[in-house]
């Protein structure tokens, strides 16, 4: 589904990631951990081509991201749902319109009942007509999750999705992601919340990857 082959990424100041080899099989569930600034967000952005590696190859859906062009990359991104810690929305549109945006850009119209079910699933039915600036941090995260899954993507990438949530809401979001994984979706969650990882391991066969010294390694049994 996603493969990194000897991938490196450097900002102006030096190499953040180097020699990263990684394969995410279809239907797998992975956590990505590491200290702040280790490169978790960067690795996620490399997965869907928001950033391009400075060395090596990133393969998404069996195609090298670097060779597909901007329109090809856009088509590939439709199969990837992304939830970021700092979720961005189109603030002049309602929550419902923002959630259905991925359908609009492909010329599709969502089924109102499906939308209603989806908003109910993330607990935002009562806020369907609200504008994003009116939402709390947790509500924004759930709205972003709804937007990410509305096209039923093959891969879900989440960057600190519970960063703005209390524990109860974090567990609820985790349950939603686990449900998606059970539907066959590939999940990769970047987090430093060890409690969340432990909670997930009770529900799903999740593997934990850790970024250390710019490289990605499989975390040990201490988790």
């Amino acid at each position: 589904m996603i493969a990194f082959e000897n991938v490196a990424y450097s900002y102006g100041g030096g190499e953040l990631l180097s020699g990263v080899d990684l394969t995410l099989q279809p239907g797998s569930f992975h956590f990505l951990t590491g200290p702040s600034g280790a490169g978790k967000s960067t690795l996620l952005k490399l997965c869907y081509g928001e950033l391009l590696s400075t060395k090596g190859r990133v393969v998404l859906f069996d195609r090298d991201i670097r060779g597909v062009g901007r329109d090809g990359l856009a088509r590939m991104r439709r199969r990837v749902g992304v939830v970021q810690q700092d979720c961005q929305f189109l603030d002049h549109l309602s929550v419902a319109a923002n959630v259905t945006l991925p359908l609009s850009v492909t010329g599709r119209e969502g089924d109102p009942q499906d939308l209603s079910d989806l908003l109910g699933w993330v607990g935002l039915t009562h806020l369907a007509g609200a504008r994003p600036p009116q939402l709390s941090g947790g509500e924004r995260q759930r709205a972003a999750l709804a937007r990410a899954v509305i096209t039923s993507p093959d891969v879900m990438l989440a960057d600190e999705p519970t960063g703005n949530l209390d524990w109860e809401m974090s567990l609820r979001l985790l349950t939603l992601l686990v449900e998606l994984n059970r539907m066959g979706k590939t999940i990769l969650i970047a987090t430093h919340d060890m409690n969340l990882i432990r909670a997930a391991k009770t529900q799903v066969a999740a593997r934990v990857l850790r970024i250390k010294g710019g490289r990605v390694e499989l975390a040990g049994a201490e988790l």
């Binding site: 869907y48 928001e50 901007r70 329109d71 856009a74 088509r75 590939m76 991104r77 439709r78 990837v80 992304v82 961005q88 929305f89 189109l90 945006l101 991925p102 850009v105 492909t106 937007r147 096209t151």
Partner: peptide, 16 residues
């Protein structure tokens, strides 16, 4: 620009 980033992320093509 933030709107452009959101649209890019959800798979909108440049022409759209």
């Amino acid at each position: 620009e933030s709107i452009l980033k959101v649209l890019r992320q959800i798979g909108a093509q440049d022409a759209y």
